[in-house]
Computed example of a mutant assay.
Amino acid sequence: MSLSTLDKLTSRFDAQAAQGMDDVFQFHFCDAGSHYLVIKDATLEVQEGEHDDPSVSLSMDTDTLKGIMNGEVNGMTAFMTGKLKATGNVMLATKLTSLFPAS
């Protein structure tokens, strides 16, 4: 399930928004294991598992990610209500919607 969500993100990736970035987004899904996105110089790589040194780690269920990415869930609200937990460079998480704009 989460992999299909991440596959959809890949097709929405905006390379221009990622210019000059060198960051790792670690996702811990309580219902689908761990995956991470490596964004470096306008390229995207999706990997399964744990990264040694992520820029930001996000913990949630796959429905929360789906809702945030399609605009049905406000990321800040999800964070404040405990549906989304973030550690590391939390401000990076706010870039997800510009890196993966809704169609």
Rank of each mutant, 00 (worst) to 15 (best):
M1E: 09
S2Q: 08
S2F: 10
S2P: 01
L3T: 11
S4W: 14
S4C: 15
L6H: 08
D7S: 09
K8T: 15
K8W: 12
L9R: 03
L9H: 01
T10N: 12
T10A: 14
S11L: 13
S11C: 08
R12F: 03
F13L: 00
Q16V: 14
Q16I: 08
A17E: 00
G20S: 08
G20L: 05
M21H: 06
D22H: 15
D22I: 03
D23F: 12
D23A: 12
D23L: 06
V24F: 04
V24A: 08
Q26F: 00
Q26S: 07
F27G: 08
F27M: 09
C30P: 00
D31S: 00
D31E: 02
A32N: 03
A32L: 06
S34E: 04
Y36I: 02
L37P: 02
L37E: 04
V38Y: 03
V38E: 07
K40W: 01
K40L: 03
D41K: 02
A42D: 01
T43M: 01
T43I: 02
L44G: 02
Q47H: 14
Q47I: 13
E48S: 12
E48V: 07
G49V: 01
G49T: 00
G49R: 02
E50V: 11
E50P: 07
H51I: 11
D52G: 14
D52F: 11
D52S: 15
D53C: 12
S55V: 08
S55E: 09
V56G: 02
S57Q: 09
S57D: 01
S57H: 08
S57Y: 06
L58A: 15
L58N: 06
S59N: 06
S59C: 10
M60Q: 05
D61R: 14
D61C: 05
T62G: 00
T62K: 04
T62H: 05
T62W: 07
T62N: 04
D63T: 15
D63S: 11
T64H: 11
T64V: 10
L65A: 13
L65R: 14
K66D: 14
K66C: 07
K66Q: 15
G67R: 09
G67M: 07
I68L: 04
I68E: 04
I68Y: 13
M69D: 10
N70P: 06
N70C: 12
N70T: 15
N70K: 07
V73E: 12
N74F: 07
N74R: 09
G75H: 05
G75E: 05
M76I: 12
T77F: 00
A78G: 14
A78D: 01
A78R: 05
A78E: 06
A78M: 03
F79W: 13
F79A: 11
F79V: 12
M80K: 11
M80T: 13
G82R: 09
L84S: 02
L84G: 06
K85I: 10
A86M: 06
A86Y: 06
T87N: 10
G88T: 08
G88D: 01
G88M: 02
V90K: 05
V90P: 11
M91F: 11
L92H: 10
L92T: 08
A93Q: 09
A93G: 09
T94E: 08
T94G: 03
L96P: 04
T97Q: 13
S98L: 10
L99P: 01
L99M: 03
L99R: 06
L99D: 00
F100N: 01
F100L: 10
P101Y: 13
A102W: 04
A102Y: 07
